[in-house]
C-alpha cells in the first residue's frame, strides 16, 4: 500500500486510463498547462500533449455538449466543469441531451462520458462556489452520480467511470483533495453502485457520502468513547444506489441517521429516508434523522458558513438524541 492524496489519486486514475485507452481525453477550463484550479489534472498535459489534454473557452454548455458529441461518435471524453455550481450553466446539455440520448434514440446512441466536477464548502468560496448539488443530478434518470470520499475510492471509481459506457457525473469535494489515504497497488477498480462500510457498529447506522464521510467517522469515534457503536455507510455512488447495504445495516442497528452537506429540503437524504421507511419500517426503533445543510445559500465568513453545514459535533449530537 502506498499513501497518496485524493488529488494525486484522481491524477493517477486519469493517467492510467489515458495510457490504457487512446480514446480517452480531457477537456475543460484551465485543465491543460495549468493543471486545473485544484491541480487535479497536473502533469497530464506534459505527458499526453495538447491534443489529449486541452483548455476550453469559458463555455460550460459547449464543454459538456462537445464532450457529448465526441462521445456519440466513439471517443471517451472526461470533461471538467470547474465547480458543480457551474453545472447549472450547462444543465440543458446535461439534463436534456447527455442523460437522454441513449434512451430517446432507442439504445442507438452510446454516451461514454465522464463529467468531473467538485463541490462543497471550502474556505469562504461563498454562495456560487460552495454548493452540494448532487440531488439535481440524481433527479435525472440516465445519469450515474459518483461521489467518492477517500483517495482509494476516488481512483478506483474514476477508472471504472471512464470505462463505463454511460454518462457519469463524478463529483469530488474541494476539501478532500489534500486528504491522504492508502492506495492499493496495481490496476484496481471500484464498482459503481456499491456502498462501503467505512466503520462497523451495532447501535446506529450513519448513511453518508463525500466529505461528510470524514465528519461522520469523526463523530463515530467521539461516540465510541461514550460506548455508542455507530456504523458508517459510505454510499460512494448515489445512482445507482446500493440500497441493499443500507437496508441490511438499518435492520441490524434499528436506527438511521443520514448526513449530507447539501441543504436539507429536497436533498438526497429525503430519498434515502423514504426508501428506509418503505423497506425497513418495522425494524426502526427511532425516527430517521437527517443531518444536512441549512436551507440558505452558503455564506462567505467562516462563522457563518460553519453554522450552516453539518460537522462531527452536530452529527454526534443527533445520534445521542436517538439512543
Amino acid at each position: 500500500m502506498r499513501v497518496m492524496s485524493y488529488r494525486e489519486a484522481v491524477i493517477e486514475a486519469l493517467r492510467e486510463e489515458m495510457t490504457r485507452d487512446g480514446n480517452v481525453f480531457l477537456m475543460g477550463e484551465d485543465v491543460g498547462r495549468m493543471g486545473g484550479v485544484f491541480q487535479a489534472t497536473a502533469g497530464l498535459w506534459e505527458t499526453f500533449g495538447p491534443s489529449r489534454v486541452f483548455d476550453t473557452p469559458i463555455s460550460e454548455v459547449a464543454i459538456v455538449g462537445a464532450a457529448l458529441g465526441a462521445a456519440l461518435v466513439g471517443l471517451r471524453p472526461v470533461a471538467e466543469i470547474m465547480f458543480v455550481d457551474f453545472t447549472g450553466v450547462a444543465m440543458d446539455q446535461i439534463a436534456n441531451q447527455v442523460a437522454k440520448f441513449h434512451f430517446m434514440t432507442g439504445g442507438q446512441a452510446i454516451v461514454p462520458l465522464v463529467i468531473r466536477t467538485q463541490g462543497g464548502v471550502g474556505f469562504g468560496d461563498a454562495a456560487q462556489h460552495s454548493q452540494s448539488l448532487e440531488a439535481w443530478h440524481t433527479h435525472i434518470p440516465g445519469l450515474k452520480v459518483v461521489m467518492p470520499s477517500t483517495p482509494s475510492d476516488a481512483k478506483g471509481l474514476l477508472k471504472t467511470s471512464i470505462r463505463d459506457d454511460n454518462p457519469i457525473i463524478f463529483i469530488e469535494h474541494k476539501l478532500l483533495y489534500q486528504t491522504e489515504g492508502p492506495i492499493p497497488e496495481g490496476d484496481y477498480l471500484v464498482p459503481i453502485g456499491k456502498a462501503d462500510i467505512k466503520k462497523e457498529g451495532k447501535d446506529v447506522t450513519i448513511i453518508t457520502w463525500s466529505k461528510m464521510v470524514l465528519d461522520s467517522l469523526e463523530a463515530a469515534s467521539l461516540l465510541e468513547e461514550e460506548g455508542i457503536h455507530a456504523e458508517v455507510v459510505d454510499l460512494r455512488t448515489l445512482n445507482p444506489l446500493d440500497l441493499d447495504t443500507i437496508i441490511f445495516s438499518v435492520k441490524k442497528t434499528g436506527r438511521a441517521v443520514i448526513v449530507h452537506e447539501a441543504c436539507k429540503t429536497g436533498g438526497f437524504g429525503a430519498e434515502i429516508a423514504a426508501l428506509i421507511v418503505e423497506k425497513a419500517f418495522d425494524y426502526l426503533d427511532a425516527p430517521i434523522q437527517r443531518i444536512a445543510g441549512i436551507d440558505t445559500p452558503i455564506p462567505y465568513a467562516a462563522p457563518l458558513y460553519r453554522a450552516v453545514i453539518p460537522n462531527p459535533d452536530k452529527i454526534a449530537q443527533a445520534v445521542r438524541g436517538l439512543l
Partner: peptide, 13 residues
Amino acid sequence: GGGFPIAVGAGLS
C-alpha cells in the same frame, strides 16, 4: 440550438 455543441464534439472527434 441543442445540436450546436454536439456537432462541435463530432468535429472535435
